[in-house]
């Protein structure tokens, strides 16, 4: 296994010319997001006559990934939201020069003493579910309420009436390019989504893109300390994030409690309070169907990465098998019911 410690220490020394005796220890790879290699490590150095120790996280581009994203998207999201008080790690360095660690990477604060819930655990938060759930939906409302320009979140804008089309085009293209076998349910979903476009977004918001169980850290008291994995963030309809967070795949055994947290009605109420926005049920239904399709596209893409040998991380094979099966079933159930409604 490659020894990242001396190479990363050299990088830190370069980025912190005021520091001396920079050392890096305890480099440990962790599962953290499906599109970047993630490492925990401890850095120590001397600065101004005193010893400094800081636990850090290094996120490096992989050779191939579950989701092909630009690392600066995620870094810029942390940079935009960190000063707002939303719990995100402090971003420290973004590096695109390949000479340091062969591939681009970024560095951020390590959130210590916390855990993430498994999205495949039917009860990921146990007795903390209520407390965590209230924060989870309130934080999502705060993300929707933020004015992108005010927090320095600069991304390509889209007209409120076009948010749905841009996202649908993007993920349909992923399926077109990556499917290893014909996908009748995904294709039926795409046709339904195009026949039944949602109302225009009431506001152009920052959309996290992967806001769900498993993508935030909480401590033993049940306080959410870091919202992670902003790799798919973009500007768009805030209903998109609600639908993804409430997708039946996450904590699948508790569909009445999205993500294994609080009842759906309470979750949506908290989101509306925090965002100051109203949830249009027709729009939300569209985004729910869309997100199950987006999930399918991600798992289809993961399957192709594994199949071709571009990336042999076992999470790609498992998600291709299990999550494709789940999202196919979720979509088949919903779309067949909608087809029956249309016929009636």
């Amino acid at each position: 296994m490659e020894d990242l410690a001396p190479r990363f220490a050299a990088y830190l020394a370069h980025r912190m010319p005021q520091a001396s005796n920079v050392e890096v220890a305890g480099v440990s790879r962790i599962h953290g997001g499906a599109s970047r290699e993630t490492f925990r490590l401890s850095a120590t150095w001397k600065e101004g006559g005193r010893d400094v120790a800081r636990p850090l996280v290094l996120r490096r581009d992989p050779v191939a990934s579950l989701i092909e994203t630009e690392r600066d998207l995620e870094y810029n999201a942390y940079r935009a939201f960190h000063p707002t008080g939303l719990p995100v790690p402090e971003p420290l360095f973004l590096e695109t020069e390949l000479k340091w660690l062969d591939r681009p990477f970024f560095v951020m604060e390590q959130i210590v003493g916390c855990a993430a819930g498994s999205p495949f655990n039917p009860d990921p938060y146990g007795p903390l579910a209520e407390k965590i759930g209230r924060q989870f939906w309130t934080h999502l409302g705060r993300i929707a309420a933020a004015e992108p320009k005010d927090i320095g979140f600069e991304m390509e804008a889209v007209a409120p009436g076009e948010c749905w089309k841009r996202e649908l085009d993007k993920w349909e293209k992923v399926i077109d390019e990556d499917e290893l076998s014909p996908q009748p349910i995904a294709r039926a979903a795409i046709r339904w989504l195009r026949r039944n476009p949602p109302p225009p977004a009431q506001k152009l918001s920052v959309v996290h893109g992967d806001y769900r169980t498993g993508n935030f850290l909480f401590n033993e008291e049940g306080d959410i300390k870091a919202i992670l994995d902003w790799e798919m963030c973009h500007l768009g309809d805030p209903l998109e994030d609600i639908a993804w967070a409430a997708d039946p795949l996450w904590a699948f055994a508790t569909p009445d409690r999205p993500g294994g947290m609080i009842p759906r009605a309470e979750a949506l109420h908290l989101w509306q309070e925090a965002s100051g926005l109203k949830i249009d049920p027709v729009g939300l239904r569209w985004w729910e169907i869309f997100n199950s399709l987006k999930g399918l596209a991600i798992w289809i893409s993961a399957g192709k990465e594994y199949h071709t040998g571009a990336n042999r991380d076992p999470i790609l094979a498992l998600s291709s098998w299990y999550c494709t099966d789940m999202h196919d079933r979720i979509l088949a159930g919903r779309l067949s019911a909608l087809a029956k409604e249309e016929r009636a």
């Binding site: 009748p184 349910i185 299990y322 099966d325 088949a332 779309l335 067949s336």
Partner: peptide, 14 residues
């Protein structure tokens, strides 16, 4: 067709 697809997906349930 939908009945077939729903059944097929149920048959593949992992």
């Amino acid at each position: 067709i939908w009945a077939f697809l729903v059944d097929a997906m149920e048959g593949r349930r992992l």
